[in-house]
Design a protein around this nucleic acid. Structure first.
Lengths: 188, 188
DNA sequence: AATAAACATGTTGATATTTACATGTTTTAT
DNA sequence: ATAAAACATGTAAATATCAACATGTTTATT
């Protein structure tokens, strides 16, 4: 059950529009970067591989005077493989790596004060991230459509994917913050 | 900021007791496996490396008639490096990879029914996992000490690390299940 | 006009991780 | 007694990922 996820991440991004390698790199710095990302040094070789496999093709476009950029498009074969992957039930990962929780497992190596400082630092970082995510959400409400109006979120909404990853990222950080707050008393 | 997390995971496991490579592999299949793990093919070379670096040493023990196993112990240098890592504030990862959420970002590639099936499958798997984690927790209450008794959880409790990772794993799955339940109506 | 930031595409080397290959012993259940 | 499961340790090959190297263009700011 070997799954080249980056392959499908790229195919998925190209499902609706043409992108350059640079554009794909940029996309991974936006909302989907909460759940998948890759550096450009991994993306460019993968794009070449996908072209070789007949899942993508590209046209070279001139930006300005002479800057050549390659605009990639998904092929029919690419759409077919993307759909096959998207449809397949996603098994739960056995491990969701989290180095902070690894430190918590080894909390007995620290003094109570050292542990408290580490813990409160994580709480602050997670709270700040949560604030940013909520601000992003607030800014996107006009795009998503407010509740109880004709613009409310629904299956065919063009930004459903965006809405789902943003609400999920908020839920993840909210849960993290609540867990941290519920257990900080153990270190006081 | 290169951090060999497996190195510290192994040092941390050996902080309180001697383990063989096989034992370490087994530990990663238990509670800490929710947040960090590695295969034996990665562990054995890492153990050799840590011995070479003077952070571990081992003695060969005979199991039964002739089965040789290597029991590893952390050295003073190992403890020093472990503590240094454990103390250092843990930055948030930019990306917490989740292939299911990547599929959700590309939900527009599926029909509503296909999306619903995928979504409900994930909900079921997450619910089952949550039940298992809660059962584990219930079984461990005697070990943790029930609330409002002299055995309640506190900083010096010998199983605080275990308690923290288990409650965190439960919080993570609970949050996942709640998010799934809150959004399944979009696919009905 | 100069400069910084953003745009744009690659490669190389080092690590990290997984799957498969490879072998043998000990314990438990039938 | 036998077979299966668990114990035990390694290596090899492939893939995934990241940091650093390498180069050049275009756009926005000052």
């Amino acid at each position: 059950m070997i799954v080249r996820v980056l392959k499908y991440a790229i195919l998925g991004l190209l499902y609706r529009q043409e992108y350059s390698g640079y554009d794909i790199t940029s996309q991974f710095k936006k909302e989907i970067g909460q759940f998948w990302s890759a550096k450009h040094s991994q993306i460019y070789p993968e794009l070449r591989k996908l072209v070789d496999e007949g899942l993508l093709h590209f046209r070279t476009q001139i930006q300005g005077e002479k800057l050549e950029k390659k605009m990639y498009t998904i092929t029919e074969a690419g759409r077919k493989e993307l759909l096959e992957w998207a449809l397949s039930p996603e098994p739960l990962p056995e491990t969701e790596k989290d180095a902070f929780m690894l430190k918590m497992y080894f909390i007995h190596t620290l003094s109570q004060e050292e542990a408290r400082i580490l813990f409160e630092n994580q709480l602050q970082q997670r709270q700040e991230k949560l604030v940013h995510l909520k601000q992003e959400y607030e800014q996107l409400i006009p795009l998503f459509g407010e509740e109880n109006t004709s613009g409310a979120m629904h299956f065919d909404h063009p930004h459903l994917g965006h809405y789902l990853v943003l609400t999920k990222a908020i839920a993840r950080e909210q849960s993290y913050v609540e867990w941290l707050k519920r257990h900080v008393h153990l270190l006081l």
